[in-house]
Amino acid sequence: MITLYDYELSGNCYKLRLLMSILGIDYKTVPVDFYPGREHKSDWFLRLNPLGQLPVIDDDGFVLRDAQAILVYLASKYDASGTWYPRDNPELLGQISQWLAFADGITSTSSAARLHDGMFYDFDIETVRAGAHRLFRILDEHLWFGEQEGRDWLCSADHPTIADIACFPYIMLSEEGGISRQDYPAIRRWCDRVKRIKGFVVMSGVFPAGPAKAA
């Protein structure tokens, strides 16, 4: 069984819980006191991940760090449908990799603002908020043009991929860092679609989808 070293309020840990719920993967968690305990910098945790970062998984002795890398691993190993990380489609894999890197940018901006406001981390708040808005504008435009072409998801497929899971959490949690989504209607519609994926689970600050609108 997979063990997830987890912090309940971490968006990066949440994206793994979300994908494992969608895929029906059994797992257990080991809570790590990220704040205020800073347990991710403790000796025992640094033996798991010398970078001192969450999340980490242990899949029957195979230890892996980095949220995006773990998404790739989970989808490759456990997705029987082959749709979340379609290994037989090089173009789609390239697009997914592109958005996984984009998700890291969201983490370094939107998540940083949230850490600043909620956990008193020393970031240049105006810089990280401006960086998040720049990425949100890029994403909103991409999603809007996709909608005009009949595409609901980040990549050119008729189904979601791990790219959507990777980008979703810290966009949904952005307002906890003072970053409004009000000016990004395509992002808001996409977030609603993600919430309607079968197996979707919530976390603190991420709520279920509202009632579906009548056609």
Rank of each mutant, 00 (worst) to 15 (best):
P169S: 09
G52S: 11
R65C: 09
Y121S: 12
S156I: 09
M172T: 04
E126A: 12
K77P: 00
I125R: 13
L173F: 07
L48Q: 09
F34T: 00
H116Q: 11
W144Q: 13
A67G: 10
V202Q: 09
F145A: 09
R47V: 10
V202L: 06
D60Y: 07
W84P: 03
G150Y: 06
Y121L: 14
D122T: 09
G52H: 08
E91F: 05
A130F: 02
T107V: 15
V206Y: 04
S111A: 13
I25F: 01
H116V: 08
L46N: 10
S81D: 07
S204Q: 14
I165H: 00
K15S: 03
S110I: 09
V128S: 08
A212T: 14
G199N: 13
I96P: 02
A69H: 08
L9F: 03
A130R: 05
W190I: 02
N89T: 12
F123Q: 04
R189V: 04
D164M: 07
A103M: 06
E141D: 13
L18K: 04
V201D: 11
H133C: 03
K195L: 03
E147Q: 14
V202E: 08
K77H: 09
Y78F: 08
G61K: 03
Y85C: 12
L19V: 15
S204R: 15
D88V: 03
D117R: 08
W44K: 13
D183Y: 06
A157V: 11
D117V: 09
Y78H: 09
A69P: 05
I96F: 05
H142I: 05
A186N: 10
Q148T: 15
Y121F: 15
S156D: 15
S21R: 11
I197M: 07
F123M: 05
W84F: 13
V56N: 03
A163N: 11
I22E: 01
S21P: 11
H116P: 07
F34H: 05
Q68N: 15
F168H: 03
G37A: 14
S156A: 15
Q95E: 15
E39D: 11
F123C: 02
W153G: 00
T107R: 04
E149L: 11
K41F: 03
S174D: 03
I106K: 02
P160G: 07
P55K: 05
P208T: 10
A103C: 11
F200V: 11
N89P: 04
F45I: 05
L9D: 05
A80K: 15
A132V: 00
W153C: 03
Y78I: 06
P55F: 02
L93K: 10
P36D: 03
L16K: 07
S81C: 03
L64T: 01
A157C: 12
A157Y: 01
H133A: 02
R193S: 10
W99S: 06
F102C: 11
V128K: 01
A112T: 08
Y184A: 04
L48H: 08
L4S: 02
H159V: 01
G210V: 07
G210I: 06
E8W: 10
F200W: 12
S42F: 02
Y121G: 00
F123Y: 12
D122G: 01
G82D: 03
Q68K: 14
T109I: 06
G24Q: 08
Y35E: 04
R134S: 10
L16M: 14
P31Q: 07
D43T: 14
A209E: 08
L16H: 05
E176H: 14
